[in-house]
Amino acid sequence: MTAIDPGTAGENKLSSNAPGWERYKQAEHFRTQEDEFDACTQGFWLFLATEVLLFAGLFCFYAIYRLKYPEAFANGSHYLDPFYGGLNTVVLLVSSFTVAMAIRCAQINNQRWLNINLVITLICAFLFFFIKLTFEYIPKLSQGKAPGAFFSYPYAHDPHEPLWWSMYYMATGVHALHVLIGASLLGFVLFRSVTKQAYGPKHFTLLENAGLYWHLVDLIWIFLFPLLYLIH
């Protein structure tokens, strides 16, 4: 009675053959599993709210300096190829779709496709990083298009271009960090799903929340993409 622990104490050990999601029992301060699911999801939405407001600072960074220095931001935008930005958008949208499909598979207890969808999502996360690093970060940094005072690209068209690069690296960097966190979370979910069949129609809280996080990463990119690549 002393421990209130959804991970261990809540699991009913009697039927150990059943898949993890069937054995799961909610933490004892919740009355029903629905209550726990609702609470966890609501908590996670609140966490997503904090994430949105974290990015709000970066969007504010963008908005203020874009309005103050439109030339620098238009020029900066022209250093970026919409093809690769668009490709990354497609990659993230597809991965968002597969996460939504994974949740659907959990809801209808299709364990095989649940895992396949998660694997596709992780591949997409890897692709995103690959495109970002190979075609954007590494060549641009090697050309001297670095943030702030480290900017050394000699052919800048506007004296405020270092600010643009600061914004670009901060925004995409913080976003990439979130891709990394989301991918790790989904990797953990995949691990638990493969080893324990932890997610099924009665219990898929962590999968749902990891999915929400991944959708948020997608959501942020949906706005970053036109802001960085298309607006001139």
Binding site: Y65, P147, A149, F150, H160, L163, S166, M167, M170
Partner: peptide, 13 residues
């Protein structure tokens, strides 16, 4: 990293 967002030396505010 001197990103300049708050630095008037780089056009920041």
């Amino acid at each position: 990293f001197h990103i300049g967002i708050f630095d008037p030396g780089m056009g920041g505010d």
